[in-house]
């Protein structure tokens, strides 16, 4: 599905990603963890086209996408959920979903607000909102939503776009514990639909519930890439997060 090979990303003199290689199979759910500054979000930005790679290739379903602009990558099925909420707060919930549907090749968007095609898009948008229980607020501004609801809206919007690869950047950040379960449920829904999901998350106990694999990054390199159980029990994970135990080196 997604193949990353020897990816290097740098901003001026700062080398953020230093040769990342990783492959994700279709329908797989992969967690990406690592301490702050390890390059997790930059990796997602690089896959979505917002951070140019200096070296390396990215292939999506066998097609090279590293030279494509972000919108072309999105049209090829790459869906992105942003860390700091990528919804349009000044627009209604309905318009947020409409925007996604209107980008689809199978939707012919209408110019006139009262045209049949526009009405059809609105109806389809409502079904997406109903799925996450936000249809009651369809006409309200998205800024009126809570953090968790915003995240749900963003996930369902990416689903409306027709993406089959989801990049979720810290989906539970800024979300109440009660809403966390709703988000977990929507991730499970994505899995049951056969979507491929990549999740950045700090809470390893949260993602190990549904991840097939966990990739651990440190200083822009893949340190571990294994099943959640093996990654959790690996000593290197403790070292990355809590530092090396240097007691033996003391005099």
């Amino acid at each position: 599905m997604l193949e990353l090979s020897d990816i290097f990303v740098s901003f001026r003199s700062a080398h953020v990603l230093n040769g990342i290689s990783c492959s994700v199979r279709g329908g797989e759910t992969v967690g990406v963890i690592g301490p702050n500054g390890s390059g997790k979000t930059t990796l997602f930005n690089c896959i979505s086209g917002f951070a140019p790679c200096r070296k390396g290739t990215i292939t999506l379903r066998g097609e090279r996408i590293d030279h494509l602009e972000p919108y072309l990558r999105a049209q090829r099925g790459l869906g992105r959920v942003f860390q700091n909420f990528g919804i349009f707060r000044e627009m209604s919930l309905l318009e947020n979903i409409q925007l996604a549907l209107e980008s689809r090749r199978d939707t012919s968007a209408g110019f006139l607000p009262w045209s049949k095609r526009t009405r059809e898009t609105i109806e389809r948008s409502m079904t997406f909102l109903k799925d996450v229980g936000l249809d009651g607020k369809a006409r309200e501004k998205a800024s009126s939503l809570s953090g968790g609801q915003m995240r749900l809206l963003e996930i369902v919007r990416t689903l409306a776009l027709g993406s089959d690869l989801f990049l979720l950047d810290e989906p539970t950040a800024g979300v109440s514990p009660r809403m966390k379960e709703d988000i977990a449920q929507s991730i499970r829904n994505l899995q049951s639909m056969g979507k491929t999901v990549l999740i950045i998350e700090h809470d390893i106990t949260f993602i190990q519930k549904f991840c097939d694999r966990i990739v651990v990054l440190e200083e822009g390199r893949v340190v571990l890439d294994d099943t959640p159980e093996r990654v959790r029990s690996d000593e290197r994970l403790q070292e990355i997060y809590f530092g090396r135990d240097d007691r033996s080196a003391r005099p």
Binding site: S48, G49, F50, E69, P70, Y71, A74, Q75, L78, G79, R80, F82, G86, I87, F88, R89, E90, M91, E95, Q98, L99, A100, E102, S103, R104, A109, G110, F111, L112, P113, R157, L161
Partner: peptide
């Protein structure tokens, strides 16, 4: 229209608009 909506979207958050194709 879809074009007007896209315009408003990219004015608010360009990257999110681009990631919606």
């Amino acid at each position: 229209s879809p074009c007007g909506r896209s315009l408003r979207a990219l004015a608010e958050f360009e990257r999110a608009a681009a990631s919606l194709g």
